[in-house]
Design a protein around this nucleic acid. Structure first.
Length: 574
RNA sequence: GGGAUGCUAGCUCAGUAGGUAGAGCAACGCCCUUUUAAGGCGUGGGUCACAGGUUCGAAUCCUGUGCAUCUCACCA
C-alpha cells in the first residue's frame, strides 16, 4: 500500500500530492475527464466531478484502481480543490450517492411517487386506517435502528408519522440497504397502518424507495435550528426543523385568503396596480430607484398603491383593493422589512367611519377564522379584537395620556411654547419655529399616547399638515378625517375620508414640493395625472391601508416581522 | 447612521493567568425485531468568522473588517 492507501501493484503515476496526506488522482470516466481525491489513505470519490459514466469510478471506489490514460487539464483542478473543503459528513453522503448511481439506482432519477396519504390524515382517523395499506412520502427526520428492525420518523407537509421497518417485512438485503440512508433523505413508504406497543400510530413498511438523497446533514434533532441568521437565510431548513414556522406560514396564507374572501363578498374588485412607476407617491417614504433599459428611464418601486386605486374609483369601480408588495427604502428592524405586504382598499360613497367598521369587523372575522377566537395572546399580552374598538381623537389621546389640552391652543406660536414646556422640541424633525400646531400635536401624541394603545384603538382626526391626501374636518381646515388603528402600540392601519377636491389636492402637493425642496426627501411627489383624474371627478370615498405583515404578526404571535416573511431582506453573507 | 452583544465540529453549546481544542446530538464501525431525545461498546471529525498586531507561544489580549441579533435614531 502506498501513501494513498492503494494496492501497490496498481499504477499511480497519476496520483499527485496536494498537501500533506491529501492526493489528487485522475481517473477516466466517460466524459469529461474527472478527478477523485484521496484523503489520508482513504479513497474519497467526489461524485460531482463524475458526470454520467460512473461504472469505472465506482469500481475504483471498491478498491480496483483504474488505468490512467489522461489527466485533467490544470484549469479543472480548482474545482477539486474546492471540494476538499467538504466536511466528513458531506463526503460520506456523496459517496453513498455515487455508489447508488454506479449501481444504476440514482435517487435523483426517480420521477414520481404515488402519495395516497398524509401523516395527519392517518393519525386523525386511525380507526379508519388501521390495517389498511397506505402510501406516504416525506423526509426522514430520525432513524432509530434497533438491530433487525428500526423506526423512522417521516415528516410530510402536515407533520410526522412513524414508519416501522424490519428485515422480515422488507427482506434482509433491502433492509441493510435502507440502513445506509440518512436523516434528511426523502423516501416513499408503502405499508399498513398499525399501533406499536407504546401506542404510536405507525406505518409498517413493506416497500420503501429512496426518492431523493440529501447531501447535507440536518440540524440536530433535539435542539433544532436556532441560529436566527441561518433560519432567515436558509428558510427551508427552518421550515423542516421548526414545526411552528410551517404553521405560521400556513396561517399567513389563510389570513390573506380570509381578507380576500371578506372583501370579495362585499363586492370589492381586486386589481393590480403598477409596481414600477416614474412617480413614487401616496405615502411619505423614500423609494427604491431602478431603471428601464428599454425606455432609458429612471423608475421607482411603489411605496403605496393609493393614487392608482383612486384612479380606479374615478373610473367607476366603486370598490377596489390591491393586496401586494410595497417597497420602502428605509430602516430595517423587527417591525420593518424593505418589502412588505400591504392592502389598500377604497370604497366610493363612504367615509372614514365606514372604514373603521370595516377594519374592526374584518380583523375580528379573520381572527375568528384563523385563530378560532377574537381574543389572541401576543407576546404574553391578551388582545381583544372583538368590535367595537375604542375610538379616541388624537387631541383627546394627548389630553388623556400627556395631560396637554390642544383644544385650547389658538395658533402655532402657542403650540411652540407648549412644545418647549413638555420637552417636545427634541422629538420634532423641523426647527421648532417652523413647526405648526399640527406637527406638535402629532409629536405629543407619539411621545405620550402611542405606547399606551395596547388594545385595539382608533386614533381619529390627524393634523392636515401631515395628511396631504385627506379631506379636512368640516369646520376645521387644520384637521382631517383620518384615523390610524393601533394594536399593541403599533400602527396596523391608516385610513381617510379621501380628499377629492382637485384644487385643494394640487395645493397640498405644492406644499409637499416645497418641503421636498427644503430637503425632506420623504415628502409626497406630485402626480399630475392623479390630480387630472380628480378633475374628472372622484365620488366621496373612504380608503384604508392595512399592514398585512403586522396583522399576521399579531395573529401568529410573531415577535419580528421577519418571522412572518419567508425570505426577509438580508445582506449577502460574503 | 450610533451603541451593546455574538460568530468555536453538520447542529446546540462549553472552554481559557495566553501553553497541542471539549461535550451532547449527528457521522463512521460493531451489538440489539415495537423504539420514540431508544440503548451499549468503539472510532473519526475543527483555517476557533476574516485580516493584521502584541507574544517564545493567541480561540483567548489589542486594532480593523464582515455578517447577525438587540437597541436608539430614521421610518409610521
Amino acid at each position: 500500500m502506498d501513501a494513498a492507501g492503494l494496492p501497490a501493484d496498481k499504477a499511480h503515476d497519476s496520483i499527485r500530492p496536494l498537501s500533506a496526506g491529501n492526493y489528487r488522482l485522475f481517473i477516466e470516466s466517460r466524459q469529461p475527464w474527472s478527478t477523485c481525491i484521496a484523503f489520508n489513505g482513504k479513497i474519497r470519490i467526489q461524485y460531482r466531478l463524475l458526470k454520467p459514466g460512473f461504472q469505472r469510478a465506482a469500481a475504483f471506489y471498491q478498491g480496483v484502481c483504474m488505468n490512467q490514460e489522461q489527466t485533467v487539464p490544470e484549469g479543472q483542478n480548482q474545482e477539486a480543490d474546492e471540494l476538499r473543503n467538504l466536511s466528513e459528513q458531506q463526503r460520506v453522503r456523496r459517496e453513498k450517492l455515487a455508489k447508488l448511481q454506479s449501481e444504476g439506482r440514482d435517487p435523483f432519477a426517480v420521477l414520481t411517487w404515488n402519495q395516497t396519504h398524509h401523516s395527519k390524515q392517518i393519525k386523525d382517523a386511525f380507526a379508519e386506517h388501521e390495517n389498511k395499506d397506505v402510501s406516504v412520502a416525506g423526509r426522514i427526520m430520525s432513524f432509530r435502528d434497533i438491530g433487525k428492525a428500526g423506526f423512522i420518523d417521516l415528516q410530510d407537509r402536515d407533520g410526522r408519522i412513524q414508519v416501522y421497518l424490519n428485515a422480515e417485512g422488507l427482506g434482509a438485503e433491502i433492509y441493510a440497504d435502507i440502513k445506509t440512508w440518512d436523516v434528511g433523505d426523502i423516501v416513499g413508504v408503502e405499508g399498513y397502518v398499525f399501533k406499536t406497543k407504546r401506542g404510536e400510530i405507525s406505518v409498517h413498511a413493506n416497500r420503501m424507495v429512496l426518492l431523493t438523497k440529501s447531501l447535507e446533514p440536518l440540524p440536530e434533532k433535539f435542539h433544532g435550528l436556532r441560529d436566527p441568521e441561518i433560519r432567515y437565510r436558509r428558510r427551508y431548513l427552518d421550515l423542516i426543523m421548526n414545526t411552528q414556522v410551517m404553521d405560521t406560514f400556513k396561517k399567513r396564507t389563510q389570513i390573506i385568503k380570509c381578507i380576500r374572501d371578506y372583501l370579495d363578498e362585499r363586492e370589492y374588485i381586486e386589481v393590480d396596480t403598477p409596481i414600477l412607476s416614474t412617480i413614487a407617491s401616496g405615502a411619505a417614504a423614500r423609494p427604491f430607484v431602478t431603471k428601464s433599459n428599454a425606455l432609458n428611464l429612471q423608475l421607482y418601486l411603489r411605496i403605496a398603491t393609493e393614487l392608482y386605486l383612486k384612479r380606479c374609483i374615478v373610473g367607476g369601480m366603486e370598490r377596489v383593493y390591491d393586496m401586494g408588495k410595497n417597497f420602502r427604502n428605509e430602516g430595517i428592524d423587527i417591525r420593518h422589512n424593505p418589502e412588505f405586504t400591504m392592502i389598500e382598499l377604497y370604497q366610493a360613497y363612504a367615509d372614514y367611519n365606514d372604514m373603521m367598521e370595516l377594519l374592526e369587523n374584518l380583523v375580528a372575522y379573520t381572527a375568528l377564522k384563523v385563530c378560532g377566537s377574537t381574543t389572541v395572546t401576543y407576546q404574553g399580552t391578551e388582545l381583544n379584537l372583538a368590535p367595537p374598538w375604542r375610538r379616541l381623537t388624537m387631541m383627546d389621546a394627548v389630553k388623556e395620556y400627556g395631560n396637554i389640552d390642544f383644544s385650547a391652543v389658538k395658533d402655532d406660536a402657542e403650540a411652540q411654547v407648549l412644545a418647549k414646556k413638555h420637552g417636545l422640541d427634541h422629538e420634532l424633525k423641523k426647527k421648532l419655529k417652523d413647526c405648526t400646531k399640527g406637527d406638535i400635536l402629532n409629536a405629543a401624541f407619539e411621545k405620550f399616547a402611542e405606547e399606551h394603545l395596547i388594545q385595539p384603538t382608533f386614533i381619529l382626526d390627524y393634523p392636515a399638515d401631515i395628511s396631504p391626501l385627506t379631506k379636512q374636518k368640516p369646520g376645521d381646515p387644520t384637521m382631517t378625517e383620518r384615523f390610524e388603528a393601533f394594536i399593541f402600540a403599533r400602527e396596523i392601519a391608516n385610513a381617510y375620508s379621501e380628499l377629492n377636491d382637485p384644487i385643494v389636492q394640487l395645493d397640498r402637493f405644492t406644499q409637499q414640493a416645497r418641503e421636498r425642496e427644503l430637503g425632506d426627501d420623504e415628502a409626497y411627489m406630485l402626480d399630475e395625472d392623479f390630480v387630472a383624474s380628480l378633475e374628472v371627478g372622484m365620488p366621496p370615498t373612504g380608503g384604508m391601508g392595512i399592514g398585512i405583515d403586522r396583522l399576521i404578526m399579531f395573529l401568529t404571535d410573531a415577535y419580528s416581522i421577519r418571522d412572518v416573511i419567508l425570505f426577509p431582506t438580508m445582506k449577502p453573507q460574503s
